[in-house]
């Protein structure tokens, strides 16, 4: 879709949006695990519009595994659309099962998140707790989904069949700034399985990705951590210009300044779940 043109909604999507509003009404009041990403922002704002401010609460679980800039953006979008927000701290890095970074690391992270969030939501009178899982997520390797099931978390977007693209289309029509925001999984996803997750490594990755954004790199971007080497995944549009001197030296210098000794550009560019492929983990 052209960036300046908003296409009329497809009848299927109009029906799905109505189904989502009805789904939310039937379960209100509802709390939503809110990261400020594309999916949970769409769900939170839709719930605010459908239910009113008193029957929805967006709960942010703050942790070192998410960049500070993401929380700032989450708070900003919630304020703009008058979505009530509560912020909780989570401590998954203190769980040695998480820190060891097994392939089901997300299970321990989400277990920590939901075990803190759900009791708070219920204590405040919210009957249901939902997350922003979408239909596309169901085909990916997502051990965090098991933790959600164990804590009774509903996933209306997945349940009603919303794909990522449909969520982006609906978000755009709602005027959400997240409609074309790149996907933003947690920083721990940049570490190969088995490499210990530490707050220092997460901070290094956060600084590295921020440094690349400061160079003007747009779109999907990941700095994959390989000890002394940073493997950078860029979108297909961005990759060629960063192979050109002197730009590649700027990119290299920016990452060396964040503590990496060596910098490499992934030749295929951005791939969601790239480290899953590298380590033979699949859905």
């Amino acid at each position: 879709m052209d960036a300046d043109t908003i296409a009329p909604p497809e009848p299927t999507l109009i029906r799905m949006e109505a189904e989502l509003a009805a789904w939310l009404e039937a379960r209100a009041p509802i709390a939503i695990g809110f990261s400020g990403g594309v999916d949970s922002t769409y769900l939170a704002v839709t719930a605010r519009l459908a239910l009113g401010a008193g029957r929805v609460l967006a709960i942010i679980g703050r942790s070192p595994s998410y960049p500070e800039s993401q929380w700032v953006a989450a708070r900003d979008v919630a304020r703009s659309f008058e979505v009530p927000v509560l912020e909780l701290d989570t401590a998954e890095l203190q769980d040695p099962r998480y820190a060891a970074n097994p392939s089901n690391r997300c299970y321990y992270c989400k277990t920590e998140l939901w075990s803190r969030l759900v009791p708070v939501a219920h204590a405040r009178g919210f009957r249901a707790v939902a997350d922003g899982t979408n239909a596309d997520d169901l085909s990916d390797w997502r051990p965090g989904a098991q933790a959600a099931r164990e804590h009774g978390i509903a996933s209306p977007l997945a349940e009603l069949g919303f794909t990522k693209q449909q969520i982006r289309d609906s978000s755009r029509r709602l005027g959400l700034p997240t409609w074309r925001q790149p996907s933003s999984p947690c920083l721990s996803s940049r570490l190969p399985y088995g490499v210990e997750v530490t707050s220092e490594r997460l901070k290094q990755i956060e600084r590295a990705e921020a440094a690349l954004r400061a160079l003007g790199i747009a779109g999907d971007l990941r700095v994959r951590y390989h000890e002394d080497l940073a493997r950078v995944e860029l979108s297909a549009d961005e990759l060629p210009r960063w192979l050109e001197p002197p730009r590649f030296a700027d990119l290299r210098d920016a990452l060396v300044a964040t503590g990496f000794r060596r910098v490499a550009l992934d030749l295929r560019g951005f791939r969601s779940g790239s480290l899953n492929v590298l380590h033979g983990v699949s859905a």
Partner: peptide, 11 residues
């Protein structure tokens, strides 16, 4: 190999 990355040399 499943992945290829080009190391950016120091100038």
């Amino acid at each position: 190999f499943t992945h290829v990355a080009i190391e950016l040399p120091s100038e």
